[in-house]
């Protein structure tokens, strides 16, 4: 596994992962492991996955992202997918992949704002 290829930054209680390279099997697995280890070690209320740098998301990558979101959820972290490109959205929908259950936002700012609304409610604040 090639750990650390996808940078994970911390903004307060939120983690920001920016996927800017093609997600090959090894990289995808490492990314998933990195995210989950970080949550386990330091905790996180929210996770933003920025895919604005991806010009293609096939069913494999879509599944990795959705799975990572579900795994993070089990650890109490809410995931928001941000920055999907128009052609990527159209392609996923045409394939029949609407990624239900995954929260989305146009950009990182909107993603943070969305987490700001959702997280306190979920944590009973």
């Amino acid at each position: 596994m090639i750990r650390g290829q996808i940078p994970i930054l911390r903004i307060g209680t939120t983690l920001l992962a920016t996927i800017h390279i093609e997600l090959r099997d090894a990289v995808a697995e490492a990314f998933q492991a990195d995210v989950l280890t970080t949550i386990e070690k330091d905790g996180a209320a929210g996770l933003l996955i920025d895919i604005s740098g991806l010009d293609i998301v096939d069913s494999y990558v879509a599944r990795i992202i959705a799975e990572t979101g579900r795994m993070a959820k089990l650890m109490g972290t809410t995931t928001v997918l941000v920055g999907m490109r128009p052609e990527v959205a159209a392609t996923l929908i045409r394939m029949g992949y609407s990624m239900e259950g995954v929260l989305t936002a146009l950009n990182v700012d909107d993603g943070l704002e969305l987490l700001g609304h959702i997280v306190p409610k979920q944590r009973g604040a």
Partner: peptide, 27 residues
């Protein structure tokens, strides 16, 4: 496939479509 589609001046949606289909089928 993406390079060829870009060279032939396909639109971004068509490029994403054929590249993604290629990815699925090649895999």
């Amino acid at each position: 496939v993406r390079e060829i589609a870009e060279m032939r001046k396909f639109d971004t949606f068509a490029i994403a479509a054929i590249t993604t289909a290629t990815s699925e089928l090649a895999r």
